[in-house]
């Protein structure tokens, strides 16, 4: 098992390095630079812009900038964020927990909800409920994330204002609340973005799980369980679900990239101060180090996610473990 993981880790490192190089080149190729916007002022001369470019080493040729960046990276330094005037590592360290919280809640929520919906569908297979839920899950699965998120934002913060309009806390009052109220405030802000991401991801999980359950239901051990007199509910829960969960576990790894990009959209729309919001803002402000740093952290998360899924799969399936 150990050589396998070592090989996977080496592959992951190559992928991350490749992604970092590509993103470095792409963002630097985009027209403009971090100081283009200061030129939108009749009093700002080109010399001011050149001074700023020199301060941040942007006046050097691109290969030299890349070599310097790689050197910093080797020392564990992701560079300096122009737009935050802080180390990129600091910016991402502040944002990452928010993204992980959002993704974590959505991951647990979407798989729990998706499996529950699949169980209901399979228990009532062929019924109107099954057909209706199939339609709903298909709709959620195919719906563009940003569109659904904007709709949810409008619906529940403006037309029916039961949730706050984005952010992770009440910007005005949070610092003046007691501990309990602070936790409540944070939960209130988390609910809508997490719920949106959960509902969107649950559609795919439900469809996948339903198919997996239907696949195991004709198996011999299910027929045996029926002959033993177990109820349909017990058969589904104790026998069918446990076996049908294996492909769903591999789905966790596969859904990680989708969940991460989904979280980026959700963060932008709900102003959730996570990595997605930081990176999207960095792209528009041409904050090169923050963009590349965000991409590196994102690709590490995705490769780690897929690695974790492999471990879970091996843990859950004794055949893989033995192999």
């Amino acid at each position: 098992m150990l050589p396998y993981f070592a090989r996977r880790l080496a592959q992951a490192a190559v992928i991350v390095a490749f992604v970092a190089a590509i993103s470095f080149a792409l963002i630097h190729l985009a027209p403009g630079d971090p100081f283009s916007a200061v030129m939108d002022n009749p009093n700002v001369s080109e010399s001011v812009r050149q001074t700023l470019r020199a301060q941040y080493g942007l006046d050097k040729p691109l290969p030299e900038q890349f070599a310097r960046y790689v050197g910093s990276l080797a020392r564990g330094d992701l560079g300096w964020s122009f737009s935050h005037d802080r180390p990129v590592l600091d910016v991402l360290a502040t944002a990452l927990p928010n993204t992980l919280l959002l993704m974590g809640v959505a991951l647990v929520g979407s798989f729990s909800l998706g499996i529950l919906v699949a169980l209901i569908q399979v228990a009532r297979r062929g019924s109107a409920t099954d057909h209706a839920l199939s339609g709903v899950t298909l709709l959620l699965f195919s719906m563009p994330e940003f569109w659904f998120a904007i709709l949810a934002l409008l619906a529940f913060t403006y037309w029916l204002p039961i949730f706050p309009v984005g952010g992770s806390v009440d910007a005005v009052m949070h610092d003046y609340m007691g501990l309990g109220a602070r936790i409540g405030d944070r939960l209130r802000h988390l609910t809508l973005p997490a719920l949106t991401l959960t509902v969107l991801a649950a559609g795919g999980v439900a469809r996948y799980q339903r198919a997996a359950l239907l696949e195991v239901l004709p198996a011999d051990y299910i027929r045996t369980a029926r002959l033993k007199g177990l109820t349909e509910r017990e058969i589904l829960r104790r026998h069918a679900l446990r076996n049908a969960l294996l492909p769903t576990i591999s789905l966790i790894g596969l859904s990680f990239p989708a969940l991460l990009t989904g979280a980026f959209f959700i963060e932008k729309i709900f102003a959730w101060p996570g990595m997605g919001l930081a990176v999207v803002s960095a792209i528009s402000s041409r904050d090169y180090p923050l963009v590349v740093g965000g991409v590196i952290i994102g690709s590490i998360m995705v490769t780690l996610g897929s690695l974790i899924a492999d471990v879970l799969y091996a843990w859950a399936d004794p055949r893989i473990r033995a192999h």
Partner: peptide
């Protein structure tokens, strides 16, 4: 005086319209 920072114009406007600011 508290400036509530939204990432873009529409969110900032919605916060004002919804009475948050």
């Amino acid at each position: 005086v508290v400036w509530s920072i939204a990432p873009d114009f529409p969110t900032a406007l919605t916060r004002f319209l919804s009475g948050e600011t």
